[in-house]
Design a protein around this nucleic acid. Structure first.
Length: 472
RNA sequence: GGCGGCGUACCCAAGUGGUUAAGGGAGAGGUCUGCAAAACCUCCACUCAGCGGUUCGAAUCCGCUCGCCGCCUCCA
C-alpha cells in the first residue's frame, strides 16, 4: 500500500488513483532560458523515480512534464544575444534533453510546450472572465484572488497574512495587490499572439492549468514540482483551474526539497549554482542521481563536491561487483532462487511505499549487493543469481546500476587513459614485466611497478585469472 | 509579521511512541594474498541541539530555549 505526503493536507495519504490501475501525473518542468543546474536535477530525478515506481507497482502512468518556452527571462536573454526568443528556447530544450539523458531519466509520456497551447490558455482565461474571476485592465488580464474564498489553501496562508510583511509592489492596473497576470499585453518586438484582449502573451501559471487538464483531464491524480513552486505557482494553478472548472485540479500534491550550496538555496538568481552538464562531465550523471536518491525527496539536500566524489566511488564499486557477478553467472545459467529475489524486492517495496523512501530503498539495494558478493564468494550461484536479479529490479526503479557493468568499467578506463600519459599497451607491458618479476620472486620490482602505476591513478588487482587494472 | 522545514556517530543519512537507533563513506581489527587491491566477517551513537512536560514507555507527542534554512518576488 503506497502512501504519499500531500502538501494540500499536509499529511501522509494512502494513494488511490481516480481510475483504478491508471495514474495521471503532471510535473512542472523548466523555463528554458539557460542550462539546468543541480537543483533542477534533483526535481527531475525525484519525479523520474516516482514515475518509475508507480509503473513498477503496476499502474499505467501518463506522465506529463511541460516546457515553459515563453517568459520574461527568455525574452530578455534573446534581446541580450540579439536572436529570436524561439532560438533561445529551442537551444535550451535540446540541452535539457541531453541533461536528461546524462541523468538516465526516462522520457515523460508527453512534453508539451507552452507556446503550442496558447489557444487552450485563451479559452481558460475566457472561462474565468465569464465567471467574474478575471478582469481585463489595460490589455492585461488578471485573476481576482479575493473572489475565490479558498485562495491560499495549498500554501496554507490567508490573503491578509500574505499582505502583512510581503514585498508587494503597488500596481495600479491590479484591483488587489495579490492578483496575478493571466495574460500580458506585449511590448513591441516581443513574441505575441492574438487574443480577445489584444496582442499579448500568457502569464506563467496559466500554461500548466491548460496543459494539465488537456492531457490528463480534471481532476487528475498527482501534481508535482519543487517546493518553491507551492506559492505562488501551484496556488495560482489551483485558483485558475478550480475557479474555471468548478472541480478539484489534482488529488495529490507532491513537492521535492531544495538543493543547498553552502547552506543556501541553489538558484540562478543567487549565482551559486553548478550545471548538470558541468557536474556530469566530472563525475557522471549517475553519481548525481545517486546523491539525489540518497536523500529523502522532501528534505533539503546540501550539495558538496566531496559527497559527489564519494557517491561516484560507491557507484564504481557497485559496477565492479555487478561485472564480477555477470561474469560468474554467464555460463552457469544458474536458476535464481525465487524466494530470495522476493525477499530483497519486498524490503525495497516496503521502503518505497512509505512516501518513496529512497534512502531506505538504497539500504535494500546494498543488502542485496552484499548478499550477492557473499554468495559469489561462497560459490552459491543460484542465490547469487537471485541477488543479481533483485539488484536489477531495484536498480531499474532507482535508476542505479542500470548500465552495462562491463561497458561502464571500460569507459572508466578509457577516461583514465585519455587524461593521463599512459597507454593501455604501456600498462599491459608493465603488468607483463611485473608478472615476470613475481615469477622469479623479485617482489621488490613487482611492488615498484605497482607503486609507479598507483602514482598515476592505476590500481592493479591480482586474481587467479590474472592481473587486471582499474582506475583509482 | 505570516506559513513551512531542519538540528541523529568523524562525514552523509533513515527512523517519528515500545525488541540490540537502518544503510553508505571514513576509521580499526580479521579472512584471503608473496605483499596488496577487491570481496567477505567483526567493531565503531546506553544515545538522538538544550531544558521541561505527557506516558508504564519518547529521538519520535506537547511546551519553551538555542542554532540554521526555505517560501511570502522570477525560481526545481
Amino acid at each position: 500500500m503506497l502512501k504519499v505526503h500531500d502538501t494540500l493536507s499536509g499529511k501522509l495519504e494512502v494513494f488511490e488513483p481516480i481510475n483504478p490501475g491508471a495514474v495521471g501525473m503532471y510535473v512542472c518542468g523548466v523555463t528554458v532560458y539557460d542550462r539546468s543546474h543541480i537543483g533542477h536535477a534533483r526535481a527531475l530525478v525525484c519525479f523520474d523515480v516516482i514515475y518509475r515506481y508507480l509503473k513498477f507497482c503496476g499502474y499505467e502512468v501518463t506522465f506529463v512534464r511541460n516546457f515553459t518556452d515563453v517568459d520574461d527571462k527568455i525574452i530578455k536573454r534573446a534581446e541580450q544575444r540579439g536572436v529570436p526568443a524561439m532560438q533561445v528556447s529551442e537551444e535550451n530544450i535540446a540541452a535539457f534533453k541531453e541533461d536528461m539523458r546524462v541523468l538516465l531519466c526516462e522520457q515523460p509520456d508527453l512534453e508539451p510546450k507552452a507556446t503550442e497551447h496558447i489557444a487552450e490558455m485563451i479559452e481558460l482565461i475566457g472561462e474565468l472572465e465569464a465567471k467574474g474571476l478575471a478582469y481585463e485592465s489595460g490589455g492585461d488580464v488578471y485573476f481576482a484572488v479575493d473572489r475565490l474564498p479558498e485562495y491560499g489553501k495549498l500554501s496554507h496562508r490567508r490573503l491578509d497574512d500574505m499582505m502583512a510583511g510581503a514585498r508587494v509592489e503597488v500596481d495600479e492596473r491590479k484591483r488587489h495587490p495579490m492578483d496575478f497576470a493571466l495574460w500580458k499585453a506585449s511590448k513591441p518586438g516581443e513574441p505575441d499572439w492574438d487574443s480577445p484582449w489584444g496582442k499579448g502573451r500568457p502569464g506563467w501559471h496559466i500554461e500548466c492549468s491548460a496543459m494539465a487538464s488537456k492531457y490528463l483531464g480534471q481532476p487528475f491524480d498527482i501534481h508535482g514540482g519543487g517546493n518553491d513552486l507551492v506559492f505562488p505557482h501551484h496556488e495560482n494553478e489551483i485558483a485558475q483551474s478550480e475557479g474555471a472548472r468548478g472541480c478539484t485540479l489534482a488529488r495529490y500534491w507532491l513537492h521535492n526539497g531544495m538543493v543547498n550550496l553552502g547552506s543556501e538555496k541553489m538558484s540562478k538568481s543567487l549565482g551559486n549554482f553548478m550545471t548538470i552538464q558541468h557536474c556530469a562531465a566530472e563525475y557522471g550523471g549517475e553519481a548525481l542521481r545517486y546523491l539525489v536518491v540518497g536523500t529523502h525527496y522532501r528534505g533539503p539536500l546540501d550539495f558538496t563536491v566531496e559527497r559527489l566524489q564519494e557517491q561516484k566511488k560507491v557507484l564504481d564499486r557497485i559496477y565492479e561487483s555487478l561485472a564480477r557477478a555477470d561474469e560468474a553467472l554467464a555460463g552457469a545459467a544458474a536458476k535464481p532462487d525465487a524466494g530470495l529475489i522476493d525477499e530483497h524486492v519486498a524490503a525495497f517495496r516496503e521502503a518505497m511505499d512509505e512516501d518513496f523512501n529512497t534512502s531506505r530503498a538504497l539500504a535494500a539495494l546494498h543488502d542485496a549487493l552484499r548478499g550477492m558478493n557473499r554468495y559469489l564468494d561462497a560459490g552459491q550461484l543460484p542465490q547469487a543469481a537471485a541477488c543479481r536479479e533483485a539488484l536489477r529490479r531495484i536498480g531499474a526503479v532507482l535508476g542505479i546500476g542500470t548500465q552495462d557493468p562491463a561497458a561502464y568499467l571500460e569507459s572508466l578506463k578509457q577516461q583514465t587513459l585519455s587524461t593521463g600519459d599512459l597507454t593501455a599497451e604501456r600498462i599491459e607491458a608493465l603488468i607483463a614485466e611485473r608478472l615476470a618479476a613475481r615469477k622469479s620472486r623479485n617482489f621488490a620490482r613487482a611492488d615498484e611497478i605497482r607503486d609507479e602505476l598507483k602514482a598515476q591513478g592505476i590500481i592493479l588487482e591480482d586474481s587467479p585469472a590474472g592481473t587486471t587494472w582499474k582506475t583509482a
